[in-house]
Each structure stands twice: as C-alpha cells, then as structure tokens.
Design a binder for these strands. Structure first.
Lengths: 277, 277
DNA sequence: GTCTATAGAATGATAGAC
DNA sequence: GTCTATCATTCTATAGAC
C-alpha cells in the first residue's frame, strides 16, 4: 500500500484510492490520507523527500517536475525557519510572516524587473509557493504593489523626519534629507527601494492614480525644506525642488555600491545646488 | 458566380473555388482570382467595401469581424494617402513609407505604454495591418525598439549641435542644449520622445545593453558643454552633469503642455544650477 | 494555508497561401 | 507585402480538495 506512494508520489489521495481499488483493495481517499498522515507522508513534498532520502542520494531517477516540487518545499521551509520561532510543527508559515515574505520578494522583483515584468509566478517561486497560493494573501497583483509602495513611502517619511529633527540649519537639513532619500533608494531593503520606480515603471493609469497619495506626503515635506532655504530672490522654488528631486532619483541610474556613499553624493549634490551666497 | 463573393466575401480563392465546384462549376482557385481581379475585388477588404457601398449604407448586417476588416483597410489606406504621392494603384504602401509608419506608431505606443506594455498587435492595429505582417518589416520586437531608439538619439544630437553652433557663451550654450533636450522629449514627434524613457522603461538586460551606444554620443556632448563652464574650483563636474541630466529627464514627470515652455524651463533650470558667480 | 487543476485571455512569432 | 491560421507560451485569477 505504501509501495504505491513510493511509485507514484505525486498522485493525490483520490487518484491513489482509485488505483488501489482497481487493484482489489477497498479504501476511500480519506482512508489513504489517514494512512499517509500516520507515516508523515501527506504531501507530495514529503513523499518525494522520503524517497530521495531512502533510495537514491543522487536523485538521478526523479523527473524534473519532481525535483521542482522538492526544491519549492525546501525554499518554503527554509524561509519559515529563518523567521524567528514562529514556525509550526510541519513547516507551515505563521500568517503575518508569510505575508511579509511575499511583500519582500515582490518588492525585490518589482525593483529589478518592473511591475509588468514581474509575474505572480516569479514572486511565488521566490517564497516557495505555487502561484495560486499567493492569492490567499493578496487579492490581486495591483494590491500587492500598492501595499509595498505605501509601506515604502511611509518608511521614507519616518526616516527622513528622524534624520533632520536635531538639525536647524536649512541647507544642512536638506542635505540630510537627501542623504536619506538616496540611501533608502540605493541601500535600503527591497521595500524601501521601490519608492524611486513608482513613477517611471508603472504605465497602468488606474494603478498610477492609487499611488499618488503616498507620494504627496513626502512631496509636502520636501516643499517645506525648500521653503526654509535662503535663496536668491529670483529663484523659482518650484523648479528648484523638481530639479533636486530629478537629480536625486537619477542617482538610481548611475549609483554603484562601492564608490561614493549616499552621504557623499548628497553632500556634492547640495553643493551643486547651493548658490555661493 | 459573383453572387458567391457577395454572400461570403471573406472566403479566399481556394474556398470559393471549392464551393463553386461542388455547385457544378468547374473553376480553379487562380481562375477565381482572375475574375475577382477583373472586377477589382481581389481582397476581402475590397469585396466588403463593395457590399457596403451597394447594399446597405448602415452596414448593420455585417458581422463585427467584417467591420474590423473594413476598418483595418481604411486605416491602412488612409495612412498611405497621407504620405506624399508614393501610393500605388491599389493602395498598397511603398516599402519605406510603411516601415516609417510602423516606427512612428510603435514609438508613440512605447512612450505611452512602455516597452513591455506594448504588443505587436497594438502596433499593427495602429497602421492597419495584421500582427503577422509587422514581422515582414522588422524581424522582432526588440529590433523595432532599437531602431526607434537609435533614430531618436541621432536626431537629438543633430538638433542639439545645430542649436548651439552659433552661440559661444558656455552657459548660454548649455541652456540652448537643455532647451532642445526638453523640447524633443516633450513636444517632439513620437520618435524624439523615446529618448527619455529608454533607461527607465526597459528591464530586459540584453536590450538595455544594445541601447547604451546610442546614449554614449549624446553623453559625450553634454560632458563637453559642462567642461567649458566656469564653475567654482571644488565643484564636481561629473555630479553636476548627472544632476542636470536627472533634472532634465524629470521634467517628463511634471511637464504640462500649456504652462511653461521648454525654453522657459531650460532657462530656469540653468539659473538654478548656475552659482551666482 | 497550501495545493491541484484549469479557465480564459494575451503574447511573440512562424508557415505558407496569395 | 499582406493575409490566414495557428503554435507554444505565458499571464492573472479562480474553484475546490485537502
């Protein structure tokens, strides 16, 4: 009876029961599941893992598909163990932990490949799930991006405010804010890095409109910093702000990790923008 | 015999010949074509057009598919007539003209929807062709984009050089170049506008590498303009150039046609970047 | 909470008729 | 040079078993 599980590890309970019945053994699908569970073999992953451990360390006689199932299971369980102590007995993720994993993986891929260039499949693979399972955590791809974008800007505003709080010199305050902006977008975690790409990489109008609000708070903050500056009377502060913002986001194109640090870049940028008054 | 063409205008020559043969008339597919051509009815578009003209001005009894064929043909022929004098007798496009139409339509869509967001089908529809026909003119989607990008930057360099030729003041020269940059990207034709999006909207590595060379020439030009400026000794000219480039390309995000002109924007930007020396 | 299985639409590209 | 017809993939999203 367990021979069957070894020969066709990917058969579900229903298929296995049918197979056994046609071989003369009267057993229901739930009966199959009961026995599997007793031997800790109730998922395809576990059945394959058992085979791999017992029979053939080289796994040379497993199909590509079977290897994929194993790999996926390994990734999924690996991630769960990384998260502190919240893993359940059989390796299923705690609810919030899994959501967070998906957000991180998705953010990383969105930054690297763009919104349209990233599929739910890509994201699912990263966290060791099948595509359909992602939809248990997020209702659709768009909401997933919105969640990341929102969180990214929230963190940016918080970090930015914290950085300038202790400083009173307007130019120094602006420089500190710029350093945070660059550091977040270049060296931050995946979620922090998404702030820079929202405007350029999203071509879906409806989605774009959903993102505007997130940006607005940050824009306001920057507007205030620029308003406090001591600039020549004829300088257009709106243009000043937009030029600075463009320069900041353009670093995404040329920034290389080993070279200038975000702090140094901010310093040089402000030097460039500061009229020698 | 022509009744058949009226009843089933979408049947090809082969189908029509078979139909006629089973009705007792011995005729080959090429015979059908010969007669159709004599009556100027050799394409489905022409047959449908004839029906529409003769029978029913409201076209209410045509299927959606038939209306689509008519519309496509109309677009295709409309474009051909717009191009000066090169249209052939039956409305087929001259070779270079058609290529140019495809380039223009594709550029427009790439700018609006991004590279990944634009399908060959979208492009084909714009010029009144079927998707497969686009591949007669361009071997693949990537080559199509590369061709547009190359032409866009070629034009930008030419325009830029022409604009600064007569001017000798370094700051004024830079301002003129900036004005051309903004004007091309905001108010230029579809091909000119593609220059601004290449870096942000393309996430395919291989394609991105094919585009680098196009940008290099222009970058060199800008480098030279910045080198000629009279800047404070401690200013980092590399950062200066990159900041300016970022500010220029960022206009794409906030530029609105009715408000400031590209010339005015360039003027204000340079004012912002020019230390009050 | 994850999986199996699949719907249903869109995509880039090709072969061969005309 | 354009069309017909189609392939093989890929995509987002869902239903229902477990």
């Amino acid at each position: 009876m367990l021979l069957l599980a070894r020969r066709y590890p990917q058969h579900g309970q229903a298929k296995a029961a049918r197979e056994l019945k046609s071989a003369g053994h009267a057993i229901s699908p739930s009966g199959v599941r009961y026995i599997w569970k007793k031997h800790n073999l109730e998922t395809a992953y576990k059945r394959l893992k058992a085979i791999a451990a017992l029979r053939d360390p080289t796994m040379s006689n497993l199909t590509a598909n079977q290897l994929a199932i194993l790999k996926r299971g390994d990734i999924s369980r690996g991630l769960v163990q990384d998260s502190r102590g919240s893993n359940t007995a059989d390796g299923a993720a705690a609810p919030d932990e899994r959501q967070n994993q998906i957000l991180q993986a998705a953010a990383d891929l969105f930054v690297k490949q763009g919104y349209g260039g990233t599929s739910i499949r890509d994201i699912a693979q990263r966290v060791g799930l099948l595509p359909g399972s992602v939809y248990h955590h997020f209702p659709c791809k768009e909401d997933l991006f919105v969640a990341i974008h929102h969180e990214g800007f929230r963190q940016l505003v918080v970090r930015s405010e914290a950085a300038i709080r202790a400083e009173s010199d307007p130019w120094k305050r602006l420089e500190l804010a710029c350093a945070v902006h660059i550091d977040s977008a270049m060296e931050g975690d995946a979620i922090a890095r998404i702030t820079a790409i929202g405007l350029f990489a999203i071509h879906e109008d409806r989605l774009q409109r959903r993102l505007e609000k997130d940006r607005e708070t940050y824009d306001q903050q920057l507007r205030k910093l620029v308003a406090d500056l001591d600039l020549p009377r004829k300088t257009n502060r709106s243009i000043f702000r937009l030029a600075l913002l463009g320069a900041l986001n353009w670093t995404l194109i040329w920034y290389r990790p080993g070279k200038m640090t975000p702090k140094q870049i901010a310093r040089e940028l402000i030097r460039t923008f500061r009229a020698s008054t």
